[in-house]
Design a protein around this nucleic acid. Structure first.
Lengths: 349, 349
DNA sequence: TTGAAAGCGCTAACAC
DNA sequence: GTGTTAGCGCTTTCAA
């Protein structure tokens, strides 16, 4: 007999019950328990009931890890998601969409933040791979993703999000960056603006490059020569964006409008325009929506992205491939939407 | 010889390489490969190099799931996190903090959104348990968490976040809800407000109950009798909060100040005050910070929570318990901070 | 309808 | 220093 203080009993309590324990308690073989747990046919109602009761009594939870080891399809029902930061609203919206699609298939999602750190990309991907994720959804920052080639060949679906992969052929889901920028710039041109400043992030980032391209091409197409003085790159935080705006406003012929190519930059622009008392004089269109944009004065006109669609499309693509879809890698382009709110409709002075 | 079209070769390519494959290629036994991979001592430099080369060549990734099956500590280096929604800024900040602490220990985090759905709580917890997570960090909505007792006994650390557990003794990390509400109400009382409205969420939610208690107690303590007409519960979205404010403003003796006990409610209040032209006349203090609060006109005074600390404390507690800490379950109370920005400093009319 | 035995990829225990 | 064997909890295979 075992008492509460008997170390063997404590040991037994701590160890999670196994299929064998359930089988013994129910007086059947392990395979029968396996059949019941996995709802396989050819088990009598009575046996099912007995096994269920035993499992219930022991609070048995099957160990998926052990099961997956031998299972034919070798799936872990697990997905890895790599984003800029799970705390960033854009990434969080992508994450949520991925989770919702995954949930339909009883797939759990590992999420990991990158912070634009290439080392972290490698270590996170490896951490996921060692845990045998069935598929990967990645926002990458490594210059090349060739290191993933072997996994792709091995049949692990990899879908890139918000970036196009380099050195590897894989699916990608991206916002129509250049076209969105074109929409913003044409909106400003139509109001009569000609001196339209561009404030953007590091050109090493794919999305920054694309948006800038859209800006430049659109100006040229409309017969406006881009001016170097009105173009500022490498703005990787709010403060830098603010400073850049202050400098632009101090020019002899300051811009009458600003196209801000990223979220955080837009916030810096707003702050700076306000403190210069220029927020109702200089037009502003931002790429990517800003929280509370509609409640600001003036409300901020933006080219909004659709992170929920991006996440959903990426997740569906992963599952389509897991279901055996075998077509060449392709891009999925997700449209943007110009949301007119006020700041972008200010006319040139 | 195997060609590209040989199905056996494709099969071999698709199967992920095992320790055995590496061992064969390196001409050693599996245990030696295991030693090298796990950086165990007693392997010659030369053997290490040979094994490394073979592993590299095959792009070998150890299978943690298989390893954990036999390993003494039986850890999966995996954590489960259950939050309201990964897309909600508060939850996302908690998530990020948990991830950062987990990363230090090479632990991967499963995150799952609940959407206040009790069914989802159960299925997510079970999904995590079947995947043998080492610990659990939970925002719960089930009326009782007694169903987790067996896991807790089994030594799986469970830490509750933003809610206190019911029917089970477990650690909890919570914001000082009542005290934060007290701070907000005292701030308004000090300015001379007496008719202070309360707008809150469903009282079934722990945090809503606590904040309301803080509001009521504080009024009474200062000799102000709470007025039923100024108290509105069950506001679970922005629109309902807006409507409630409209009704409050239409009273014969409308409130001169509003204490909004939750994020989304605050947004609804702002909208409604604005459209009534009352945003510079009626004072507003919100519980939980609002994005862009400082950029609004007036800027919004809030009782800010500290989700990053909450996540960090919860994660550390899980790891302390995994490290063998054996002390009774306790609460960790995380302080709030009153951020004075303008809306809360409007004097009574 | 049921179960015994082998094996999934790895680590533990122990032998050499 | 290195290898062999057993076994983790499950599924597969195959026999009863």
């Amino acid at each position: 007999m075992t008492s509460l203080s008997d170390p063997r009993r404590n040991e037994a309590l701590r160890r999670r019950p196994t299929m064998k324990n359930v089988a013994d308690l129910a007086g059947v073989g392990v395979k029968t328990v396996s059949r019941v747990i996995n709802r396989e046919p050819h088990v009598s109602e009575e046996t099912i009931a007995r096994v269920r009761r035993a499992a219930e009594q022991l609070q048995y939870q099957p160990d998926m890890q052990a099961g997956n080891l031998r299972r034919a399809d070798r799936r872990t029902d697990t997905l890895g998601l790599l984003v800029g930061s799970v705390a960033n609203p854009f990434s969080a919206a992508v994450h949520r969409a991925v989770e919702d699609i995954a949930l339909e298939r009883h797939v759990a999602v590992f999420a990991s933040s990158l912070d634009e750190d290439p080392e972290r990309e490698l270590s996170s991907v490896n951490a996921f791979l060692r845990r045998r994720v069935d598929g990967l959804i990645l926002t990458t920052i490594q210059p090349s993703q060739a290191y993933l080639g072997a996994q792709l060949d091995r049949g692990i679906p990899i879908v890139f999000v918000d970036r196009r992969p380099n050195g590897i052929e894989a699916d990608a889901v991206i916002t129509e960056n250049a076209e969105g920028a074109t929409g913003a710039v044409e909106h400003l041109l139509a109001l009569g603006h000609r001196r339209i400043a561009y404030l953007g992030d590091d050109e090493k980032i794919f999305t920054a490059r694309e948006r800038k391209r859209g800006y430049l091409d659109t100006l040229r197409r409309h017969g406006v020569a881009p001016e170097d003085r009105l173009i500022v790159d490498n703005l990787d935080d709010e403060a830098k964006a603010s400073d850049a705006v202050a400098r632009l406003l101090a020019l002899d012929d300051p811009p009458t409008a600003i196209f801000s190519a990223q979220n955080l930059i837009t916030l810096g622009v707003i702050t700076s325009l306000r403190s210069a008392g220029a927020s109702t004089r200089v037009a502003l269109v931002g790429f990517d929506d800003v929280p509370m944009a509609a409640m600001l004065e003036p409300a901020i006109t933006v080219v909004a992205q659709d992170p929920a669609s991006i996440g959903e499309i990426a997740a569906r693509r992963v599952f389509d491939r897991l279901d055996g879809l075998d077509e060449p890698a392709r891009d999925f382009i997700v449209p943007t939407r110009l949301i007119v709110r006020g700041s972008g409709e200010i006319r040139p002075f």
